[in-house]
Simulated scan of single mutants.
Amino acid sequence: MRPLELVREHGRTMLIVGFAGGVPLDRLIHQPIEIGQFLRLALALSVALGRLHKGRLIHKDLKPANVIANSTTQPVWLTGFGIASHLPRAPQSPEPAEFIAGTLAHMAPEQTGRMNRSIDSRSDRYSLGRHLL
C-alpha cells in the first residue's frame, strides 16, 4: 500500500493509502484454502508482522478483519492500527483490566489485564498463531 495522505477527522488521525487489491482475511478463511496457498499466506503474514515488530510497533488488534490478502499476487497488508503502540524499550507494568483495548476474542491473555505481564510483540504473535493461522 502506498501512503497518499494523512488526515485528521473527528479527533482521529487516519492514513489514506492506495489500495492494490485484495480482500479481508476473514472472508477467505470461511472457505477451504489449498495448502500451498495457506502456507504462502502464512509466510507473508509472518513476514509482515516481523517487519512491524522490527520497527518497534505492536499492533494489539491482530485479527482476520485487519489483514488484507491478495490471493493472486500473495502479499498481505496489515490494517486497523487504531490501538497500535510503540514497543517500549523497558518492560512496562501491565495495564489495569478496566483499560482493555482490542477485540476480546482475538487478543492475547495479557491484554485482558488478568495476567501479570506487559503487552509486547509476543502478544501479536499469540494472536497470529491462535486466530489467524
Rank of each mutant, 00 (worst) to 15 (best):
111 Q>E: 05
30 H>Q: 09
95 E>Q: 13
67 V>C: 01
3 P>H: 10
41 L>K: 00
29 I>S: 05
122 R>T: 13
51 R>Y: 10
11 G>Q: 00
106 H>W: 11
17 V>M: 13
16 I>M: 15
83 I>N: 10
34 E>A: 14
101 A>V: 05
40 R>K: 13
70 N>D: 15
21 G>Q: 14
12 R>P: 09
71 S>F: 06
88 P>G: 03
47 V>A: 03
69 A>F: 15
132 L>N: 12
2 R>T: 00
68 I>Q: 02
7 V>D: 12
15 L>K: 00
92 Q>W: 08
8 R>F: 03
20 A>Q: 06
132 L>R: 12
126 Y>D: 04
43 L>Q: 13
69 A>W: 14
74 Q>D: 12
82 G>Y: 08
94 P>K: 11
13 T>Y: 10
51 R>V: 09
52 L>K: 02
84 A>V: 13
62 L>F: 06
56 R>H: 08
69 A>P: 06
130 R>L: 10
98 E>W: 08
70 N>T: 08
49 L>S: 04
98 E>H: 13
103 T>R: 06
2 R>H: 04
10 H>C: 11
126 Y>M: 12
83 I>F: 03
72 T>N: 05
89 R>S: 11
26 D>Q: 08
124 D>L: 01
81 F>G: 07
7 V>N: 07
94 P>G: 06
19 F>V: 07
93 S>D: 00
10 H>W: 05
112 T>Q: 03
